[in-house]
Design a protein around this nucleic acid. Structure first.
Lengths: 147, 147
DNA sequence: ATGCAACTGTTGCTTACGCAACAATTATAA
DNA sequence: TTATAATTGTTGCGTAAGCAACAGTTGCAT
């Protein structure tokens, strides 16, 4: 039962370093998940994106402001809800996405070397359940309005 | 093949949030791995610790300076190598460690709910290999002195 | 309809951390 | 020995990201 979280954190940081080395000039590592989420489903709100990738909404707001300034995304107010900003990828981002995907694919390939498909399937299944549990924990952790 | 890194990053952040909520006042989340490593094997050098937990040595230096200022660790020059600083836990830190371990244990228990021991064993085994691969990747990534 | 709660996004503050440059020490090679 | 390279730690700089506080909007209850 010990120290799997340590491994997890290490892997996370290594990937970040790898990504930055490969694509740093174009897109900083931390924004990769974000832009992939945006392209997978254009027109989502910032809040939706924040919950999806489990980052504080303020971080998403700042990341998107930066990405918008660089011309990677556009934000349009939701006509049905003036609170929301819907986020869309620009052409510039869409052109970049293949290389983002390719860097991710390269990382995934290298990092799963020596692991059988069966093992990997179990690994992913467990990982997803852990993610679900982790999300639940931090949700319940929010200041429960006492009664 | 898909998006396991996303889960990994999410779990990482959730744990950090959980730890901070539980022990934030005493010890910020990012330093947990560090103090555990220090207590597991007192007297290691900063560089050794940095490589162990795979954080940039500058981060370790700053974290230790902060921990030292708070009275959690002591750094003594290595008599055999004047470049090195050896890091030791103080009494104050040793008293705190049980609660750090207990928070970690609580997290591990909650997060692995609904996962059988067999699955978890495979999960950890795969995770360790991925960690090893990840470390290798970032090592080789260092500017290879082109002969 | 009015007031209160929830949702959505932004901003200020703080901390974490990576990279590069540097200083000091040690190791290696000539 | 002496010059060069490698270790080890520190510092400056930039970015990421969490939390709290806030403002504007919407939903809901009465």
């Amino acid at each position: 039962m010990p120290k799997f979280m340590k491994s997890l954190n290490i892997i996370s940081r290594c990937q970040s370093s790898f990504r930055n080395a490969k694509l740093g000039s174009e897109l900083c590592s931390a924004h990769h998940s974000l832009v992939l989420a945006i392209c997978r489903e254009p027109g989502r709100s910032q809040d939706d994106l924040a919950k999806d990738i489990c980052i504080d909404k303020s971080g998403v707001a700042r990341a998107l402001a930066s990405l918008e300034a660089k011309g990677f995304v556009e934000r349009k107010p939701d006509p049905n809800n003036k609170r929301k900003l819907l986020v869309f990828p620009t052409e510039k981002l869409l052109e970049l996405i293949p290389s983002v995907r390719s860097v991710t694919a390269e990382w995934n390939r290298m990092v799963s070397e020596g692991i059988s498909e069966e093992e990997f399937a179990v690994f992913q299944s467990v990982l997803f359940r852990i993610e679900k549990n982790a999300r639940k924990i931090v949700d319940n952790q929010e200041v429960t309005p006492e009664k």
